[in-house]
């Protein structure tokens, strides 16, 4: 497989890998690193690429594994610090005012979900993959995907309802 061919294969889903990595790792820099690493691995194994029937799904799986490894090995590192920024803002009104921009608020809500839920939500609601694709990417059973997705969506809904009613009572 030549360079150009490889780029044509990889280009359409490069950003999807990046967004999944960012959903898991939170930091943009680390997400860029993860994407680069995964693409590099793909490039090195380009001779085998033709054997995979779905390169995109394979790349998503690689990204998932890479990010989960990163999270495991960095558990005591700065990632935890990033997360701790998000855990206690439910109390402070100040924090709520500061995060009035809804996009930041939403990504914070999602970042509080367990990793599995974050991935499923990302792949379905943002990237709009079909369920069977998600099953393949995350090597999960069909029912497991639906249950996880349902939990993630409800958790986000609950969080939003809470904020919303706060806004009214104030």
């Amino acid at each position: 497989m030549q360079q150009k061919e490889f780029l044509n294969t990889v280009m359409p889903f490069k950003d999807k890998l990046f967004r999944l990595a960012k959903r898991l790792l939170v930091s943009t820099d680390e997400a860029e690193d993860a994407t680069q690493e995964v693409l590099l691995k793909l490039w090195k194994n380009k001779s085998k690429i033709e054997q995979y029937n779905n390169v995109e799904a394979f790349a998503v799986t690689m990204t998932k594994n890479y990010c989960l490894d990163r999270l495991k090995s960095k558990q005591a590192g700065n990632l935890k610090l990033v997360h701790s920024n998000y855990t206690d803002e439910s109390v402070s009104l100040q924090g709520r005012i500061e995060t009035r921009d809804s996009l930041g608020w939403m990504s914070k809500i999602i970042s509080k979900l367990p990793e599995q839920q974050r991935m499923v939500l990302q792949l379905r609601d943002i990237e709009q993959y079909e369920f069977n694709e998600i099953e393949e990417m995350l090597s999960m059973k069909a029912t497991a995907v639906r249950v996880t997705l349902s939990r993630a969506r409800k958790a986000v809904r609950d969080e939003l309802t809470k904020t919303h009613s706060y806004g009214i009572s104030k």
Binding site: Q3, F6, L7, V10, M11, K14, D15, L17, F18, R19, K22, A31, E32, T35, Q36, L39, L40, W43, S102, L103, W105, M106, S107, D125, I126, E127, Q128, V156, R157, L160
Partner: peptide
């Protein structure tokens, strides 16, 4: 807020080049 976020989040792009030698 939820559904609009999903649409916007899909627009985020990676800015790095693909590492191909």
């Amino acid at each position: 807020m939820m559904f609009n976020y999903f649409s916007v989040a899909k627009e985020e792009r990676s800015t790095r080049e693909i590492p191909v030698k």
